[in-house]
């Protein structure tokens, strides 16, 4: 394999990985605060893609208006989901809220099938993301570079939010102890809603970048990315934001390299994520960056 081709795969891997990272952050933040695997997260991502199609194709909006608008709509959808499916179960056992999440996922998938039909639609073309650039013998779409850069900025922003702001401090407190957080005067529902807003917003950003790479939009499009990003979050250490990014990138790179080096295994591309998950759970169940608990009772 020549250097050029290797670079090509490396770039692709990092960029797919960055997309996984964006979605994985949503899983990991929600898990961090609610100990809930938000199974509907992949479907929120799917809905964001449909929002984009409606905004651009049906309403003829310019891209630069459509993008902030769909991010906003997705944030609202995410908060609505939390309000209706998870908030009423705040005091319920964890299993109930988990089942509610699975239900919410099916609801969104079937609602999309019912409303938009199962026929795939094309994601609107965003020229400044899909344009192909050549450097030497390596050619790539602009989105391939935009995605990882954006992820780095988002990661820095989130780390600042979580570690250096009052809201972030409240998030960390709520993630450990609802009741004591309440005693501090923290409105835990607001903090949880904010977490869902951030996760859903990032899923929307992910969907825009995703659409530039894979333009087919259909009601079940969120299932496989959703599962893989969940794996990425667990791999990196669920609850840990840099872990989710790392997990996403390792997963994206691994997948791409598997196909590059062993073309015969192309069909197992999706299986790679789950093999990785099983190995990780056996070797290091807390994930790469998972925290060791230092609680003293």
């Amino acid at each position: 394999m020549s250097m050029d081709i290797f670079m090509q795969h490396l770039l692709n891997g990092i960029s797919v990985g960055s997309l996984y990272a964006l979605i994985a952050i949503g899983y990991t933040m929600v898990y961090g605060i609610l100990l809930l695997i938000n199974f509907a997260h992949g479907d929120i991502f799917m809905m964001a893609s449909y929002f984009m199609i409606f905004a651009v194709v049906d309403f003829g909006m310019p891209i630069w208006i459509a993008i902030p608008l769909i991010i906003l709509l997705t944030v609202i959808l995410g908060m609505l989901l939390e309000r209706s499916a998870y908030k009423p179960l705040r005091e319920a056992p964890r299993m109930s809220i988990m089942i509610s999440a699975i239900g919410a996922s099916f609801l969104l998938e079937n609602l999309a099938t019912y409303l938009f039909s199962g026929v795939p639609k094309g994601y609107p073309d965003i020229p400044w993301l899909t344009k192909v650039v050549n450097i030497g013998n390596v050619s790539f779409q602009i989105v391939t570079v935009v995605a990882p850069v954006l992820v780095i900025f988002i990661l820095i922003g989130l780390m600042w939010l979580v570690n250096h702001t009052k809201t972030g401090m409240a998030m960390r407190a709520v993630s450990k102890d609802f009741e004591t957080a309440r005693l501090m005067g923290i409105k835990i529902n607001t903090v949880i809603a904010a977490t869902f807003a951030i996760g859903s917003g990032l899923a929307a950003v992910g969907s825009v970048l995703w659409g530039a790479k894979y333009s087919s939009v259909y009601p079940l499009m969120g299932v496989m990315p959703g599962l893989k990003c969940f794996v990425a979050a667990v791999f990196g250490g669920i609850g840990n934001i840099p872990g989710a990014v790392l997990g996403g990138i390792v997963l994206g790179l691994g997948e791409t390299m598997l196909v590059a080096f062993f073309p015969g295994l192309t069909g197992y591309r999706d299986a790679f994520a789950f093999v990785l998950l099983i190995v990780m759970l056996l070797v290091r169940p807390n994930g790469l960056l998972g925290e060791k608990s230092t609680d003293k009772v």
Binding site: K176, D177, E179, T180, E291, D295
Partner: peptide, 9 residues
């Protein structure tokens, strides 16, 4: 609260 319940993290 009973049991102190400081935020360990």
């Amino acid at each position: 609260p009973e049991g102190r319940r400081v935020f360990p993290n």
